[in-house]
Design a binder for these strands. Structure first.
Lengths: 224, 224
DNA sequence: GGAGAAGTGTGTCATAAGTCACATAACTTT
DNA sequence: AAAGTTATGTGACTTATGACACACTTCTCC
């Protein structure tokens, strides 16, 4: 499979591009480049212009931010097949976090100017993108309100399920960072995890969570 | 001032169209119609196709939804100068709430097909709209997380300030509905309002709140 | 003008989650 | 291996807010 075809598959998996036709998708993927990163190499930093969209071909990229106390907090992990910077490539605003390669990685890169040129040549696609952004706005305002109002166990279960989708049943994350993710105190996270451990839903190790019973976990995430 | 020019002013005030150039704005406003509504007349209902954008020229439109228990809850009031349905006109999805005239009203109407035609003729505007939608997505994800995590007094003060922008210092709303707006119990809303009454920030009447000290209220809304 | 409905004011209680304060436990560095 | 650092486990306390219960007031409608 050509690198362009591979990128097209990744785009197609992202809701933002899922509705594009095969031909449009192909013309779009033809604009992509690739870029290699060594372990620990910085892709972009907070404040850099958002001039490209990235897809992970192999490796891992950490999205992180320097907290006010100087410590670094990881906001997200992007694994193979994940796409990030979709919004930045469209509006060109500056990055709101740093991105660093967690291991030797290869990325697909779609540059902003190429993408905008494409949209001008294909106005129908621009209108589709508009519709997709609108969907996202609706989706966001529905979910956000809903999910912030959920009790901690539900938010926690949802986040664990999302992480499991990227990493499988062995999630490598500290309870501290998990707390930041779900907007809760570390101690509260710990207490909930302990409770689940007693129910055999998961096991705990230093810096690691082993998900034993995804069925129960997803049930909790759906709020029964 | 022509009705088109009047509509252009309303569009310009909305963040979504604020960045359009004067010429683009004028060509866009030329596509508008007007529509009259009698007191209590229904503009659209939940489930109707979102085939137009509306601006209030005079009168008042209530956005409301039938709650599960059969009672109706008002989600928003749109007064003169307010714009609603911006997202629906772009993606054509069905309405998620009902809209009813609260008094005899006159509305500006911009139909979806006219707007989409405009975007195809002016691809530069389509790209601007894309950028504006992106801004909105960023803004939403920043604010939402932030504002749901704020304590009740802050959320309440923000909502009151927003209502004051539409209605001046005499806000006509029940404490029950205010509770729905900010996602809190009626009793909690009442207790906070009582506290503010004692501080002379506002006065309470049946179904009405008189804002006495907007300075303090905005200070609370900014979370000091 | 009387009956009911709708809106408001307040007390009591229960609960979820944050904060603080430590005690371990596990890795790292020297 | 000793010392320091980071991650985790747990108890005690506090606080915000929801839930329920009920009194009181003001409107509406017949």
């Amino acid at each position: 499979m050509s690198k362009q075809a591979e990128f097209a598959v990744i785009l197609k998996m992202n809701p933002m591009f899922a509705d594009l036709g095969a031909d449009e998708l192909q013309r779009l993927s033809n604009l992509c480049h690739t870029q290699h990163l060594g372990n620990g190499e910085v892709l972009f930093q907070k404040g850099d212009p958002g001039d490209a969209l990235f897809g992970v071909r192999r490796g891992q990229v950490r999205i992180e931010t320097g907290a006010s106390d100087g410590s670094r907090l990881t906001l997200n992990f992007m694994g193979p097949g994940d796409l990030f910077g979709e919004v930045a490539v469209l509006d060109g605003q500056s990055r709101t976090a740093d991105a660093t390669a967690g291991e030797t990685s290869e990325l697909f890169v779609l540059r902003r100017e190429d993408f905008l040129g494409f949209l001008e040549r294909e106005p129908k696609v621009a209108i589709k993108i508009i519709a997709l952004l609108c969907q996202r706005i609706r989706w966001q305002s529905e979910r956000m309100e809903e999910s912030m109002l959920q009790p901690l166990p539900v938010r926690l279960a949802r986040r664990l399920c999302a992480l499991a989708a990227d990493f499988g049943s062995e999630v490598h994350i500290s309870q501290e960072q998990l707390g930041v993710f779900v907007g809760a105190a570390r101690e509260s996270v710990n207490r909930q995890l302990q409770a689940w451990r007693k129910e055999a839903i998961l096991d705990l190790q230093r810096g690691r969570i082993l998900l034993r019973n995804m069925t129960k976990l997803t049930a909790i995430a759906r709020n029964e």
